[in-house]
């Protein structure tokens, strides 16, 4: 049974008095003990998906439809108090920028302890003891001293470890990590990703939704991947199958554009054009205009067919319609 089951999620933003869809009809699921990578360019709506799941959308955005099945409940439907207990309790979240995610005026230990005391029935002393334990579990050296440190006294990597400690403090079943390593050095990146896998997936069988634009991070960390383009998921599958055999022209272009050690110098591929802005998205397939394989039937206003190839593999493209 899936831990998280998102069906037909739609999120809208208000721009100039009109509500426009930033996330259109997104469906995916995530099992316990599994990491799903949600990948796409800036502006494709991947972070909006994360904040929709947490119901932490900014004031000019709203959930317009869909179901977010988690823990036998529909997160899109439960009351705010119940949702608040989910946040930080059953669902942990990490943000992109560790430099700004922690409150600069409070000690690390108190910021971890506060989460514990919000969700668990523990006193201050016990919360502090648990916070120390958590700092050790995210491999922060001299954890005891760090407990009384302020965020500005820690490096970016240390802060992201502390943020991870907060996110996992109440042993969540699901971690939503929004670009958790984008702001970090490559070596630190690998350490944080390793920690996420070990602490959540291997030790606790929790689910991880990793939002990133970095295909290398996905290959390194995730079991499955969902590729997003202009507010839609265009292809999903196991990391191995998608990377070995990308089916959607966008996925193919994305993989070609990703540099790796074998890319010859100066020959990095790019995708022509740019991601269409909200309200400027073409009808039919949204990759129209940038796609090398475009055909007349791509413009069909009902959109591209969703072709399911196996248990995990699905692609939304006319090229693969039976």
């Amino acid at each position: 049974m899936s831990l998280l089951e998102v069906n037909h999620l739609r999120t809208e933003f208000e721009t100039g008095g009109n509500w426009q869809e930033a996330v259109s009809d997104i469906s995916f699921d995530l099992a316990g003990g599994e990491a799903l990578g949600l990948v796409g360019e800036s502006g494709c709506g991947k972070s909006t998906v994360a904040f929709s799941l947490m119901r932490l959308l900014p004031g000019n955005a709203r959930l317009a439809g869909g179901r977010i099945g988690f823990d036998g409940k529909d997160l899109a439907d439960i009351g705010e108090d119940e949702m608040r207990r989910m946040r930080g309790g059953r669902i942990g979240m990490m943000f992109q920028n560790p430099m700004t995610a922690l409150d600069p005026a409070f000690r690390i230990g108190s910021q971890i302890g506060e989460t514990l005391q919000t969700h668990l029935d523990v006193d201050r002393k016990e919360a502090r003891r648990m916070a120390l334990e958590l700092l050790r579990s995210v491999a922060i050296p001299a954890a005891e001293e760090r407990l009384d440190a302020y965020p500005h006294e820690l490096s970016g990597g240390m802060r992201q470890r502390a943020a991870l400690a907060i996110a996992i403090a109440c042993r969540p079943r699901l971690l939503i990590a929004d670009e958790p390593t984008t702001a970090l050095d490559v070596t630190i990146q690998a350490q944080i990703l390793r920690l996420i896998r070990t602490l959540l997936i291997e030790e606790r069988g929790a689910g991880v939704l990793l939002i990133t634009h970095d295909l290398g991070v996905v290959a390194h960390t995730c079991d499955r991947v969902a590729i997003m383009y202009a507010g839609e998921i265009v292809e999903t599958g196991t990391v191995a199958s998608v990377f070995a055999n990308p089916l959607h022209p966008y996925t193919q272009a994305l993989l070609e554009a990703a540099p790796n050690a074998r890319t010859p110098r100066g020959s990095l591929a790019t995708i022509p054009g740019r991601v269409p802005a909200l309200g400027m998205r073409p009808s039919g397939c949204r990759f129209r205009g940038r796609c090398a394989f475009e055909r007349p039937d791509c413009a069909d206003p009902s959109g591209p067919p969703r072709v399911r190839l196996d248990k995990h593999r699905e692609v939304a493209c006319v090229l693969h319609a039976a």
């Binding site: 946040r87 930080g88 943000f95 920028n97």
Partner: peptide, 11 residues
């Protein structure tokens, strides 16, 4: 940013 993180902590 940290206010959003505090919300995500369930405070």
């Amino acid at each position: 940013d940290f206010v959003r993180f505090l919300k995500a902590k369930g405070l």
